[in-house]
Write a protein that binds this DNA or RNA. Structure first.
Length: 561
RNA sequence: CGGGGCGUGGCGCAGCCUGGUAGCGCACUCGCUUUGGGAGCGAGAGGUCGUCGGUUCAAAUCCGACCGCCCCGACCA
């Protein structure tokens, strides 16, 4: 049923007032999705077609690497989640049944899939395995936002690999990289695979797939041949002009100066000629002073990774007791270990004197204080990677892959016997893809003033057929036959047979964004042809003789973006 | 969780300050006209003004509580 006159496609001229993100506005306006509650969305028929097409691509590529599709429940016993120590996660929905038994709504399915594998797999001969499902996920998000970009309920493809050792895990991981690269290529997106934080879960590797677009919640650092989440990105800092060196540090009076900007302003120096001291308390290690260049910022994630332990900013009393007045602390003459960021090149800097209203100038790392080198600053646009400047772009995370190791197999008892009869834990990986985010990213990346311009591989319809002319006209009769021809030829065609003006029909076609628009109207019908326009760029194509419609449309469907 | 904002017909909004039982544009229904870029004229239908309570002769409007939604931030194994 793809006659627009009877298709459930509620397009709107005006977007809801509270919709901000482009994809949110357009997906609602085009009648693809409708909101039910905060972070809760229905997919209307045309939107669901997009979703299904994305799922089909994912399914094909997962199957191609040997993935086996299954289906696990959303509602799961809380017990399993307690065993893996995930029951305390805030985002996890917890519910109770009529007998007061505790259940959860799954946000992923590591517990359940591992349970099955633990029950079934006995021997190294049963490995490796890749299992996946495409299933609803529930997350009690603190703040749903931007339409379908961040929701409390969404459908995700999550796969899980099971291998006997790290080499096997790496192979499964690499196979997922191949599959994911193909999936995102096929979906028509501009995307990057970036190194990502492995977090406190440990594991030996993690990547995120990022689609740059304005509504993105993440930031990626990009340079030719380089892409990384800014959470973990490293780059060479931009040079800063330093004042002349001194034989030894000298105190300078800096009354009331509490911030880098204050000090730099008073001394007439760029912020980069100062160093910034950031005292932190590290679990199991105590107080350390992290020092970065004055114009740089400490990156929480990189710091945690460099320390290899949880940390927190030192409190004011701790700073006053061990160092000096907050706002005037520095690395010289203290009995606290100093971690010096790589962004601080050799040379004389201005640093806090650990004495109110005074700073030191001419402070040289190594000469005036000892330090341990770390890389803990956030990279900035213009920093260099292999001599090339990076840019920082917002991006949507459309997929992630993660080497879990034995994080779940040990607590859930998933093990196997090796050739020697020794019991060993199974090594796991987990791999996710959010279908809705692919759709939203495509909208964001390719929309123009008129509306959406879908990549052909995930468009709800390949062809949007517009009939002009009123009931009983030759145009309408011809359009009917073109519609039937295309439909019987297996083309996904949406036929606008409504009694509406041309402007309205064209506007809706452009809003909905099918790659190819065909128009049956008097203008070209006289010469036995119909018009064709490519949605991407609104490029007029050669008119198509009626007798060749099916063949020509087939060609165009493969040729268009 | 902190900050800000908003709930009036399907969508977008006005009315609220200064109480007197609801209005505009689009969409919708019917008729006539129109028909290649969101048509014209005429006639209609559609609203517990988020909910509950309070003040008052009278509440969309004033007061209180609650609910919902959005944006920024925090958060996002």
């Amino acid at each position: 049923m793809t006659r627009l006159s009877s298709y459930f496609l509620p397009t709107e001229k005006q977007a809801p007032a509270d919709a901000e993100a482009l994809s949110h506005r357009l997906m609602v306006r085009a009648g693809l999705v409708r909101q039910v509650g905060s972070g809760l969305w229905s997919w209307l028929p045309a939107g669901w077609r997009v979703h299904q097409r994305i799922s089909a691509i994912v399914r094909e590529e997962m199957d191609a690497i040997g993935g086996q599709e299954m289906l696990m429940p959303v509602l799961q016993p809380a017990e399993l989640w307690k065993r893996t120590n995930r029951y305390g996660i805030e985002e996890l929905f917890k519910v109770r049944d009529r007998r007061d038994a505790e259940l959860v709504l799954a946000m992923t399915s590591e517990e359940v899939v591992t349970l099955h594998v633990a029950q079934v797999v006995r021997s190294y001969r049963d490995l490796p395995l890749i299992l996946y499902h495409i299933q609803t996920k529930e997350r009690d998000e603190p703040r749903p936002r931007a339409g379908v970009l961040r929701t409390r309920e969404f459908i995700m493809k999550d796969s899980y690999s099971f291998d006997r050792d790290q080499e096997g895990l790496q192979r499964s991981y690499d196979r997922h990289i191949e599959a994911y690269d193909r999936i995102f290529d096929r979906s028509g997106l501009r995307w990057y695979r970036v190194a990502s934080d492995v977090g406190m879960m440990g594991g030996s590797g993690a990547h995120e797939y990022m689609a740059p677009c304005p509504a993105g919640e993440n930031e990626v650092a990009l340079a030719p041949g380089y892409a990384a989440n800014v959470e973990v990105a490293s780059a060479q800092a931009q040079d800063v002009v330093l004042p002349p060196a001194l034989d030894a540090p000298e105190e300078v009076h800096t009354p009331q100066a509490r911030t880098i900007a204050d000090v730099a302003g008073q001394l007439g120096l760029p912020a980069g000629a100062l160093v910034k001291a950031f005292p932190v308390d590290v679990e199991g290690r105590g107080l350390v002073m992290v020092v970065v260049r004055g114009d740089h910022r400490v990156n929480d994630v990189k710091l945690a990774n460099a320390l290899g332990a949880p940390w927190r900013p030192a409190t004011t009393p701790e700073i006053e007791e061990r160092l000096g007045p907050p706002g005037s602390i520095g690395p010289v003459g203290i009995d606290v270990p100093v971690l010096l960021d790589e962004g601080v090149a050799p040379g004389p800097y201005v640093a806090g004197a650990n004495r109110a209203d005074y700073h030191l100038r001419g402070v040289e790392p190594g000469r005036d204080f000892a330090f341990e080198r770390v890389d803990v600053r956030s990279v900035e646009a213009g920093d260099l990677v292999d001599g090339r400047p990076i840019t920082i772009e917002p991006a949507i995370e459309i997929g992630n892959i993660f080497q879990l190791g034995t994080r779940y197999s040990v607590p859930l008892g998933a093990s196997y016997l090796d050739e020697q009869g020794a019991e060993r834990p199974i090594l796991m990986g987990c791999y996710g893809i959010g279908m809705a985010r692919i759709a939203a990213a495509a909208v964001e990346q390719f929309a123009d003033e008129q509306g959406i311009s879908w990549p052909r591989t995930i468009a709800p319809f390949a062809v949007h057929l517009v009939a002009l002319g009123r009931a009983g006209s030759e145009e309408l009769a011809t359009a009917e036959s073109v519609y039937e021809t295309l439909r019987e030829g297996g083309i996904d065609v949406l036929y606008d047979d409504r009694e509406a003006g041309a402007g309205e029909k064209f506007a809706d076609a452009e809003l909905l964004g099918a790659p190819l628009r065909l128009t049956v109207g008097r203008r070209t019908l006289e010469s036995g042809e119909i018009e064709a326009v490519a949605r991407r760029g609104m490029k007029a194509l050669d008119s198509i003789p009626l007798a060749e419609v099916l063949a020509r449309v087939r060609e165009l469907c493969l040729a268009l973006d």
